[in-house]
Amino acid sequence: MTTLIRPLALAALFVAVSAFAASELGADERYNAVTDPLTLKECGACHMAFQPQMLPAKSWHLVMDGLSDHFGEDASLPEEPAAKIRAYLTANAADASWWGGRFMRGLDETKGPLRITETPHWIREHSHEVPASAWADPKVKSKANCVACHPRAQQGMYDDD
């Protein structure tokens, strides 16, 4: 009996692992695209609407609390749309799901970094691969310009490097 069960269990495990690897969860550097039209419209007016999974909820609260001086610009919004965007961002934040995400690794949640580019995961992913000359390229202009190097960033695809 056991001789029959063991290969079957192994086969089942193999199938499960392969399915995980092929899924969005297992894929390298993929995130859910932003689907909320208001978030896409308002955040996307000045920069790509970054995926909320890249910062913990605490960070998104700080961002939404500080829109009148948003990285050196006034990005104020009326109360109603601001509340809706805040709800979307925090509900989909890096620490919103039980398994957390890559962006939670090594991150001090109590500090709530304001920039995605200050998170340990972002730094890990860019410190070795990206030469200083790439950041200096006028076509890049800013570290917030994901699409300069990740053309499918808006769709949540960052595994093209």
Binding site: C46, H47, M48, G72, E73, K139, S142, N145
Partner: peptide
């Protein structure tokens, strides 16, 4: 105003006919 935006032209260029660029490159 804020130090990063000393003029309208910082983002909008000096010509209304030309496309501008936000500080994040959009």
């Amino acid at each position: 105003g804020k130090p990063d935006t000393p003029s309208c032209t910082t983002c909008h260029t000096d010509s209304p006919l030309k496309a501008g660029q936000t500080r994040t490159g959009k």
